[in-house]
């Protein structure tokens, strides 16, 4: 049971990661692919924050009388990663809009067909 609680976070992180990867590989809709990519991204955030958590620790804001804090460094990394992640998502969505304008569809297989027919 102890082992289960100790590794549960990492297993769910891996599960989410694989769900995101599966969505990216198997679904043809470009918006859904981007959402799969975002799920993958969030699962990596969980991996980092899980590693920084300390049992019984407080949030890393220095207060009188608190001895144990969780690790602030993963938090800093992930703060940056979230903002950069949204920037890349915005770029990907802009590309989707351009693809829709040029091809008239956002389904991958239809785009392939159009590419081969041209």
């Amino acid at each position: 049971m102890d082992f289960f609680i100790g590794q549960y976070n990492y297993w769910v992180v891996i599960f989410l990661m694989m769900v995101g990867l599966y969505t990216v590989i198997s679904r043809g809709n470009l918006i859904k692919k981007i959402i799969g990519l975002s799920i993958f991204q969030v699962s990596v955030f969980f991996l980092y924050i899980s590693m920084g958590t300390v049992e019984g620790g407080a949030a890393p804001i220095i207060t009188e009388g608190v001895k144990l804090y969780s690790n602030p460094l993963p938090h800093v990394l992930i703060l940056t990663a979230i903002v950069v992640g949204v920037a890349t998502t915005a770029l990907a969505l802009a590309l989707v809009i351009r693809i829709k304008e040029s091809y008239g569809t956002i389904e991958e297989d239809e785009i392939h067909k159009l590419d081969h027919s041209l």
């Binding site: 955030f45 958590t53 890393p60 949204v86």
Partner: peptide, 29 residues
């Protein structure tokens, strides 16, 4: 998991801005 700063950012940027961007893309495509 004791990461309030990350939670603020995720709630504002992840749940807020990304969702709005995706809805806008849906409306356009």
């Amino acid at each position: 998991m004791d990461a309030p700063d990350v939670a603020f950012t995720e709630a504002a940027v992840g749940a807020g801005i990304s969702t709005v961007l995706m809805l806008a893309t849906l409306a356009l495509t």
